[in-house]
Each structure stands twice: as C-alpha cells, then as structure tokens.
Design a protein around this nucleic acid. Sequence first.
DNA 1: TTGTAATATGAGCATATGTTCATATTAAAA
DNA 2: TTTTAATATGAACATATGCTCATATTACAA
Lengths: 143, 143
Amino acid sequence: MKTSKGTISYFSSDNQLLCQTDQASAEELLLCQIEHADPEQEACSVGAMPSDEVIYKATQIFSALADSTRFKILMSLAAGELCVCELQEICGVSQSAVSHQLRLLRDCDLVRARRVGQRAVYRLADSHVLCLLNVGVQHASEA
Amino acid sequence: MKTSKGTISYFSSDNQLLCQTDQASAEELLLCQIEHADPEQEACSVGAMPSDEVIYKATQIFSALADSTRFKILMSLAAGELCVCELQEICGVSQSAVSHQLRLLRDCDLVRARRVGQRAVYRLADSHVLCLLNVGVQHASEA
DNA sequence: TTGTAATATGAGCATATGTTCATATTAAAA
DNA sequence: TTTTAATATGAACATATGCTCATATTACAA
C-alpha cells in the first residue's frame, strides 16, 4: 500500500499498480500504519465465515468475472468508456451476445451505461471491479 | 502496500490486511517506490487485453470462487487445514457434494490434500486464493 | 480377514448459463 | 414520415453445473 493525498493503491507482488481508491483519509492511513506496524506478526485477515448475504454478493461478483466474454468486456472498459459495437469488435462475439452480457453486468451494478445519440456508452461502475480484474490477471499470469 | 523484511501486504480501503506475499525482494520494493512515486499521475494499471491463456486461467479462478459451497470451503481453509467431514459440517452439504467440489478445487490447484490416517486434510494451495477471497469479501461487504 | 469410518467418484437429473435467431426499441438521417 | 444504424430483449437450444444416489476405494481396527 502506498499513500498520496489520501489515495490507497494496491500493488501486486511484482510491484505493478493494481488499483487505487480514494475512500480513506490521510488520518486513517496513519492509523493503519500504526496498527499494522509488523504485518508478519498477524495472521492473514481471515475472520469468521461471512454472512449468507455477503457470501451471496461475493459469489455474484466472482460469477460476473467467470466468463470470458464478460471478462473481456470488463477488461476493455477498464481502459475507458466504450460503446456496444466497439465491445462487440473487441470481444469477437455477436451484438446480441454482448448486449445480453452487458445487461447481466448492469444488473450486478458492475457497469453503467449512458446514451450518446444512438450509441450506448458503457463504463465500469466502480474501482472494485478494476481491483479484482487486476488481481485476477496478475495471479493468472504467474502460474 | 507495506513492506517488512521483503513481504508485500495488500490492504483494503479501510485498512484491513487482505493478504501478504513474500515474492518480492527488498530491492524490487525500492524500485517500486521510485517508479510509483506519484500514483495519481498514472492510470490504473490496465494494459492490453491479456492473452487467451491468461483470460482462461483468470476466468477459471473466478469460476472456482463463484459458487457458495466452494466459497465456504475456501473461506474455511483460509483459517487453516480441515478434513472433509469438518468441511461437510461447516458448509452444510453432503459428503459427496464436498468431495466433488474439493476435486474441482484440486484440479484448479486452489487447494491441496494430504492423507492423515483415514482423513484427507485439505489446505489452500497458495496465498493468491486468500487474497482474492479477502478482496471479494471486502468488496461484497461494502456495497 | 472382516468390519467400519472416511473419502472419492461415476451416473443421472434438474437447473443454470451463454449463445443464436428473430424481433422490438431508440435515435438520427433522408 | 420512412429508412437506417445502434442497441435491447424474448424464446429456444445446447452445454455446463451442482447435487443426489449408489458404489468404489482407502486406512484402520477387531
């Protein structure tokens, strides 16, 4: 983790920047550094079994990332907004297939759309997705 | 990211320790801090579309995390080794169902088993799984 | 060896999933 | 208004998935 103006960054083990978040204040960061002064003294932060609701939400998110078409859509949107026909080109599937998957991703609130003329322009809903994508790619690249 | 004796730690936005890795040397860490001196100046580390192989591996990993039984199994093992009958109790499904899912997780190399008498004792294969689990739970808890 | 506990696995079944096809909708152009 | 481009969506279909049931295997005990 590295901080700069209140931003938290996730890095992979080979120091690639995975994602950033601005949800923590500088004070919290300071607190963090005190609490985790020696990370090796504590077990990995695995607590009790999450609630059914959290388990459901988590598996829903992982499901959304578990298909190659959706994965490509999300990876593409990670670089910036794209319309459906662009995603269709990038992912190499039919317009219908992309639209159906985009609907699924919208229902999960992983992507959001806005109209620009005839086009529907999609973007990632938040940085969480980005973080998971990057961690996933990073780990998939190592094995 | 925080370093201690060559260990890299992942933290969530509210400063929970998500996971650690020891795969980077202190020199690499130092290099990292130079390269990423101002994280906000660079876009999130989203590069080109990964290769088909990496996409396949990544979606395989996400698939494994996308089922509640497997998710519970992995979360349980995150706390330490467990045998099949213990996992059966924790997950609340049949012995056969647990065994089938464990086989799937073994095939993905997400868990590994060893024999202890009549028992088969399972553990997580590596810290990557742990990291994804924690990031997933963390994000699922926020929404 | 026989019996029992723990685990693994093949077959079958019900459901979920991802795609295609046809068609509807939306927005701009002619 | 009519036409065309872009997108959305319902239905259908093939495949994948997760479970159960029955049974096999493994390890230990009697």
